[in-house]
Design a binder for these strands. Structure first.
Lengths: 360, 360
DNA sequence: TTTCGAATTTAAAACGTTTTAGCAAAAGTT
DNA sequence: AACTTTTGCTAAAACGTTTTAAATTCGAAA
């Protein structure tokens, strides 16, 4: 198998910015090059796509002198391959689709950043969109991405998207799942060990000798969220806290600010000593409310954040938190997707748990 | 002119998820539909693309009964149009390209989010990439986006990208610029009134009666940055501060943490009373250092942030800041791009200044 | 009936690639 | 000299659409 990044990509880069850049009014095609160089269009295509096969041979035989000539003409005319035509012919678009719940959330922003870099290195570009945790929007995004001919999906699914994702696989487009899992969906899923991560978060507060610890979470039942709640409950039980004493406050995803304004005062009023959060967004909203109430963070009340965020280090002492190794998650996800695209592995359920990073 | 969103998009949505979803092994084409419905492929295409023209007539006349039949078959076979073929034929991809310096920066994340939503509403999808302020990477991104057939660019250019962008226009792809301006580049540029915004930021501190005010900025000479520095200088001069007393600390874009660690202590050591920041990232890095040094924000030293950030509200009293109305910027940028694509306006230099929002 | 337009429908040519099959010439091999 | 093999190249089909120009059908008017 030859490398699948055609050499024309590199030619493209250099020739596109050739100083002899012409007017570029009409789009130059291989036909123009063929005419100018006095060869057939097939030969031009050969030159553009030539690559070294596994056995060390070139895929297409073409005379060195001719090759030079074609390349020279291509440069001079400022040739740029038409990707639509290539996609149509080859069925490969070199485009991947990324769907997260909200690209403006730092956590997903970081994920996008990491994946984008990896993709770019491999000659892929990325379509992205935010689902807003709406299965309907998710569905529409999937559809439009498929129409664009994406070769693979990396998604953070929301509830109610199993069917859609199943369809994606049916049309033969591979898919890798991030952040949330679903045993019934046959895909690699790279997820945090949410239970363990939240147990570590609680542990941090327990080690300080705190007793009255509560959790702030979301109403959405994504597995990442439910896993973290499970971790909280299990660790609290282990500590001998009765189930009635184990308190989880669940806030709606789309309106955390105003619900935080309600919940935080009641928590403070009850004399809670520590709070753990299911996500960075929840932590941030709560910190805002706490400090506006004049409560001193890490003095009057101890917090443990989740995910990574600049915010945690803005206080002194810094707010401990359990973060996700985003680079690891992304490189793993990407390599699975690439193997799926290259048909090196089968599309099948494979849950990979990643340990949280404790920052204390 | 008819609406350019073909009705098949909506058909697509509903039929793709039809409960009679077949195995979907092979991709269904209009040829299959034509065969099944006993009509020509042209007719199928007519049905799929039919739309009401400005004069109230349908673009293509097709018999009602036939139309029904074709639609029924399309639904049954689970037809999904092949976008590569359509792009190849029409030269329209319904894909836009967004290039920012770093998608994981909240500011650009928000921009991406806003633009994505607008684009989606209009039937576009978005490719995105981060330039890391590197002209070379920017160039490569532009090239790969062009190869993918994007219909338009929205970019936050970095220095050294004028030539590349000029090329983009040369191949006839429209472009809108965000956040930074360049009078020599013929494109709509939606930029903050950086001078005015920074003057407002300084004003906030002056009103408190502070005298010793310094600025933390970047070494990069993007116009957004230089504009803000200009605003700082002009307002300080107006206050009667001598040029030698006007201090701006410039940190490298790619390594603000360690340089902050050096600069902040020296600022504090000199007894500076207030600091204004050129960006949110700079503010955040500095706050982190300050609080680790035990300096009390808004007590021992007053800060004024730039851009929007969750972080500013985490303190009490909140850190005042001058933010950018991202929604306004994005909707303006998007509407310019759309008009350019639709050839309703010419690609020409047009700088639109947006006022900063003061949060004090 | 014949004829004329309007209403439907179709054939066929693009769009720019990639790739298969095969041809001609050159170079080895007996 | 008569073969095989290798080298260098080309013609042509295919990918799935859209769109133009033309063909067909169908009523209705003559």
């Amino acid at each position: 198998m030859g490398r699948d990044v055609p050499s024309l990509f590199f030619i493209g880069i250099s020739l596109f910015f050739s100083q002899f850049c012409l007017a570029m009014s009409k789009n130059v095609t291989i036909k123009d090059i063929a005419a100018e160089a006095g060869v057939s269009i097939a030969l031009v295509s050969f030159v553009m796509n030539n690559r070294v096969e596994a056995d060390g041979k070139m895929k297409y035989r073409v005379n060195d002198a001719t090759r030079e000539r074609v390349i020279e003409v291509a440069k001079r005319l400022n040739y740029m391959p038409n990707s639509a035509a290539r996609i149509l012919r080859k069925g490969k678009s070199k485009v991947l689709g990324l769907i997260v719940s909200d690209i403006s959330n730092v956590f997903y922003g970081e994920i996008a950043r990491n994946l984008e870099t990896l993709a770019f290195e491999q000659g892929y570009t990325m379509l992205f969109a935010s689902s807003d945790e709406s299965p309907e929007k998710f569905r529409q995004i999937v559809l439009s991405f498929l129409e664009k001919g994406v070769e693979g999906f990396i998604v953070v699914p929301c509830t109610g998207t199993l069917k859609v994702l199943q369809q994606v696989l049916n049309v033969g487009v591979p898919c890798v799942v991030l952040d949330r899992k679903n045993e019934r969906f046959p895909a690699p899923m790279i997820v945090l060990d949410n239970v363990g991560a939240m147990r570590s978060a609680v542990e941090i507060l327990l080690k300080k000798g705190l007793k009255k610890i509560e959790m702030i979470s979301y109403t959405i039942r994504a597995t990442s969220i439910t896993g973290r709640e499970e971790g909280f409950i299990s660790r609290m039980r282990e500590q001998g806290i009765s189930d009635e004493q184990i308190r989880i406050h669940r806030l709606p995803f789309d309106d955390i600010d105003s619900s935080t304004d309600l919940v935080i005062p009641s928590i403070v009023g009850r004399g809670v000593e520590g709070i753990v959060f299911a996500t960075n967004a929840l932590a941030i909203a709560s910190i805002r409310k706490l400090s506006s109430m004049g409560v001193r963070i890490q003095k009057d009340i101890y917090l443990v954040g989740f995910d990574n965020s600049d915010v945690y280090d803005l206080f002194y002492p810094p707010i401990p938190h359990v973060g996700q190794p985003i680079d690891k998650i992304c490189s793993l996800a990407f390599s699975y997707l690439q193997k799926l695209i290259d048909k090196e592995i089968e599309q099948t359920t494979k849950i990979v748990y990643i340990s949280g990073e404790v920052f204390d």
